[in-house]
């Protein structure tokens, strides 16, 4: 299997406090890989290193075997796209302009969009079924609609590694599940951070469990999600059931009291 994304012994600390301690993860081609862990375990910090929002040391993060620091920002944006939760903004774009911004890595900053760009944006809007929203103002959309538009932007970006920074966290269950299904249908390489463990168990081929900046477990959801790990890492007493369709279902019984 071809390795698309890789971190090697990634360390990070702020003010002498270690956030990440020797994190090594591998994401293979067309695999959906999830990162789970309790609050403050370093999940989002890890992702931010991968999508360059935090300074990375040399020889720590690799895309397609090449050190990320050897890519320009535009080059890495053609390989890797990020779906985040968009905050509300004072500035407004139409849905179409928002999706077209996905073409920015391919154009100089003063260049007009080409016909090809328009076509990619059209296709992306069609793919998520939001062509009718083209001229709507982005800020007037609901949370789930916004998230779908951002996925369309990532599609227009034509990067085949998706990084998900908890994009569905604030959405209702319908959107949580439908957006993840939409992403799985893309059949592409995905690295995501998940808070909802059932969502992670359902959609990921492989999970990494982070705790206090360490990778404490990794493997398929079945290998990783055990009552023991749930107790040790997440501090809950949980039952893990296997459903008829082979998927795992976590039932949290109670939070364990701190010793």
């Amino acid at each position: 299997m071809q390795l698309r994304l890789e971190t090697k012994q990634l360390n990070y600390s702020i003010d002498g406090f270690d956030i990440l301690k020797g994190i090594s993860i591998n994401v293979e081609d067309k695999k959906m890989v999830g990162i789970i862990g309790p609050n403050g375990s370093g999940k989002t910090t890890l992702l931010k290193h991968i999508y360059r929002a935090l300074p990375s040391e040399y020889k720590k993060v690799f895309i397609d075997g090449r050190d990320i620091e050897n890519y320009t920002h535009k080059q890495s944006a053609r390989k890797l796209t990020v779906v985040r939760q968009e905050n509300s903004s004072d500035f407004d774009f139409t849905v179409e302009k928002m999706v077209l911004l996905g073409r920015a890595p391919y154009r100089r900053s003063f260049e007009s969009y080409t016909k090809e760009d328009m076509q990619f944006a059209d296709d992306a809007l069609n793919a998520i079924g939001m062509e009718a929203y083209r001229y709507r103002s982005f800020n007037t959309l609901s949370g789930g609609e916004k998230q779908r538009v951002l996925i369309a932007r990532s599609l227009a970006q034509q990067a085949d590694i998706f990084v998900l920074d908890e994009p569905t966290n604030h959405l209702d269950v319908h959107y949580q599940w439908s957006i993840m299904a939409l992403i799985r249908r893309l059949n592409t390489t995905v690295l995501g951070v998940y808070h909802n463990l059932n969502l992670a168990a359902q959609f990921c081929d492989e999970l990494y469990v982070l705790c206090s900046g360490h990778v404490v477990a990794s493997g398929t959801p079945k290998e990783v999600l055990t009552p023991k790990l749930m107790a040790e890492v997440f501090g809950v007493e949980a039952d893990i059931m296997q459903l008829k369709n082979g998927r795992l279902q976590l039932v949290i019984n109670e939070a364990m009291t701190a010793q």
Binding site: K48, Y51, R52, A53, T72, H73, K74, S76, A77, R78, L80, T81, V82, R84, E86, N87, S89, F91, L101, G102, A104, P105, Q157, V163, D165
Partner: peptide, 10 residues
């Protein structure tokens, strides 16, 4: 759109 989004778009 924020620094993180701007970075991720190059």
């Amino acid at each position: 759109l924020g620094d993180e989004t701007a970075i991720s778009l190059g």
